[in-house]
């Protein structure tokens, strides 16, 4: 296994391997320290931080679906201040590579969190959450509108002192237009996708199963939508570094994202089902590469061979 080079480069962000964990599914990382050696992971993206602590949505917040789940947590978090003072030192001690996912209701809110992080050396990158579907203000309101998104990214880019990742929403007609808006306005890296808006209904009560009515669908159910979107963005923006996210459970799923054009991945809902899965995937990807004669994992990126699409023919 030592013969496989797992390191990946996303702009100026160098990761020891392509396995990161997705925001909202990995807490502040510390909750997983019992099950995973955090230092073996490429990176961890922590639960979205706001300027002030946020209580989130009233329950019920989650329900299981076939091959996944819906959630509408509402971005409950301890706030950037408590994260920096109470969580980050311990994450640093454990050797974790930390991505700070941030959000706000307004452009000013986003900027305030990013400013508070400043040039904090223990944070490897900042990830803008412009795609949460479970809040009334902020979140997807930015991510669904290329103009609003571009303006936000531009403002944040001016003050951000760490590499800037923009996490895209799949709840758009054309993912390439929001991807382009983010990159044209200074995003260093893209991560995609966030959850797909879904609705589950309790038929006996004829009520939504989730208190917020709709929720974000995640898990294996969305993987092929995510792979397709990564491929579309890679095709349109050949140079932008990409984190692929959506329904990753096993090493082959990681490889599929890399082939589609992702430079690295973030593992999400699978962390709930098996808290050790992220570290298992690091090992699994190395084994897959070794078994397939790949000496460098980065050589797999964007190697999808597609055929020209035929026009339909009539009898």
């Amino acid at each position: 296994m030592s013969t496989v080079d797992l390191a990946v480069q996303l702009g100026t962000l160098r990761l020891k391997n392509p396995i990161a964990t997705a925001s909202g599914t990995f807490g502040y990382g510390l909750e997983f320290a019992e099950f995973v050696d955090l230092s073996v992971l490429g990176a961890i993206s922590i639960k979205g931080l706001s300027l002030r602590p946020c209580h989130g949505n009233p329950p019920p917040r989650i329900c299981e679906t076939d091959a996944g789940m819906l959630n509408a947590i509402g971005l409950q978090n301890v706030g950037v201040e408590a994260f920096l003072s109470e969580k980050l030192p311990e994450l640093d001690r454990l050797g974790a590579t930390v991505i700070a996912n941030v959000w706000g209701d307004t452009e000013e809110d986003y900027c305030a969190v990013v400013e508070r992080i400043g040039a904090e050396r223990r944070i490897a990158a900042i990830e803008l959450n412009v795609s949460c579907p479970n809040v009334v203000k902020g979140g997807m309101v930015f991510g669904n509108d290329p103009v609003a998104l571009g303006a936000l990214v531009r403002k944040v880019r001016e003050i951000a002192k760490r590499p800037l990742i923009v996490k895209l929403s799949p709840n758009v007609g054309d993912i390439v237009s929001t991807a382009r808006a983010a990159v044209d306005n200074g995003a260093d890296i893209l991560s995609l996708i966030n959850t797909l808006v879904g609705l589950a209904i309790d038929l006996e009560r004829r009520e939504p199963k989730i208190g917020f009515t709709t929720g974000g669908l995640s898990g294996p159910a969305i993987r092929h939508v995510a792979v397709r979107m990564v491929w579309e963005v890679r095709r349109a923006l050949p140079k932008v570094p990409i984190f692929g996210i959506g329904g990753i459970e096993k090493a082959e799923d990681v490889i599929e994202f890399l082939v589609a054009g992702a430079n690295a991945v973030q593992v999400g809902t699978a962390n709930f089902r098996n808290p050790s899965v992220s570290a298992e995937l690091v090992k699994g990807v190395a084994e897959w590469c070794a078994a397939h004669g790949e000496s460098r994992v980065s050589n797999i990126v964007g190697t999808l061979k597609t055929r020209p699409r035929p026009e339909h023919t009539y009898a």
Partner: peptide, 23 residues
Amino acid sequence: ESAMACGFGVCLGCVAPTADGRF
């Protein structure tokens, strides 16, 4: 009892409202 996705405090799906106004 509550529906839970993770069981160890990260999904934040299983919350109950508390007397001090949080979950």
